[in-house]
């Protein structure tokens, strides 16, 4: 599928990964145009329905990224986020809804290079996976 341009949504925590995205940008690192950033205050702000509706509304991949465990701006938000994420991933896995289209990563504000790596790698993965079956179904 040479001309497939996925739609990828990145929910980035304001304090770490969003700042890392900023750093990557001002360092003029190359980032994929298919990746759309949505800033959230904390990775724990992401609830299941937000992820699921994003898939149902046509995302091919979703990346949630926040502060490293132990470094949450609010103390413990990312630990809760990790649990929720594990639950959601389990549900997607159980229903065989291609859980590899969903990813959680930790990227600190200082890790501009790592941010570019993570985003490029994830985008490549989704390009290879092709369009999400949720996006292409006409009976949803």
């Amino acid at each position: 599928m040479p001309d497939f341009h996925p739609r990828i949504i990145g929910f980035l925590c304001n304090w770490c990964t969003y700042a890392a995205a900023d750093l990557a940008g001002s360092s003029k690192l190359e980032l994929p145009p298919e990746f759309t950033v949505i800033r959230v205050m904390c990775s724990s702000r992401i609830d299941h329905n937000l992820i699921l509706s994003t898939f149902y509304r046509g995302a091919d991949g979703i990346l949630v990224a926040g502060c490293h465990p132990g470094d949450c701006h609010y103390g413990e938000g990312n630990y809760y986020a990790r649990r929720r994420f594990a639950l959601l991933k389990k549900v997607m896995e159980t229903l065989d809804l291609e859980p590899e289209r969903l990813e959680l990563r930790w990227v600190s504000a200082a890790e501009g290079n790592r941010y570019a790596e993570v985003v490029n790698e994830f985008t490549d993965r989704i390009r290879k996976l092709g369009p999400s079956p949720i996006r292409t179904s006409t009976r949803l």
Binding site: H48, L52, Y56
Partner: peptide
Amino acid sequence: DRMLFHTGRMTH
């Protein structure tokens, strides 16, 4: 959102 309802409820 019929499917979203059921999958959403599963996660909830």
